[in-house]
């Protein structure tokens, strides 16, 4: 019970569930190095054929946006509804565009 403080680094795990789809974040785990992280990710996150490919990334290498900045980052898209095709009303005669 003495050495648990000797924490293995934390890794974020991303899994491609099948060819044609992107890798998706599924959770995290501890491992001493990347090789062990992939091995552990296989056991923890793909016991039922949930994946065909695994990425592991040291959690400390991830830079994330902060909820504080979410208005500045994402609100400007709010008033640009013309980016969506439904903004434009077509003449009745034109069915598909």
């Amino acid at each position: 019970m003495s050495d648990t403080k000797n924490n293995w680094p934390l890794w974020e795990v991303f899994i491609r569930s099948k060819q044609g789809l992107g890798h998706k974040h599924v959770g995290s785990l501890h491992a001493s190095d990347a090789e062990m992280a992939i091995g552990n990710a296989r056991d923890v996150y793909t016991r039922r054929q949930e994946g065909v490919s695994i990425w592991v990334v040291p959690s400390e290498s991830i830079s994330a946006s902060s909820p504080k900045d979410s208005e500045a980052l994402f609100d400007p898209a709010n008033d640009k509804v013309y980016r969506h095709p439904t903004f434009f009303v077509l003449p009745d005669e034109v069915n598909h565009m």
């Binding site: 648990t4 403080k5 000797n6 924490n7 934390l10 959770g27 995290s28 785990l29 501890h30 056991d43 923890v44 996150y45 016991r47």
Partner: peptide, 23 residues
Amino acid sequence: VQDEAGHGLYLYSAAETLGVERS
């Protein structure tokens, strides 16, 4: 039993997102 180990690990991973150390 291996699934139960996995369950424990998913949950420790979720707990750690709240700012606690697994150890």
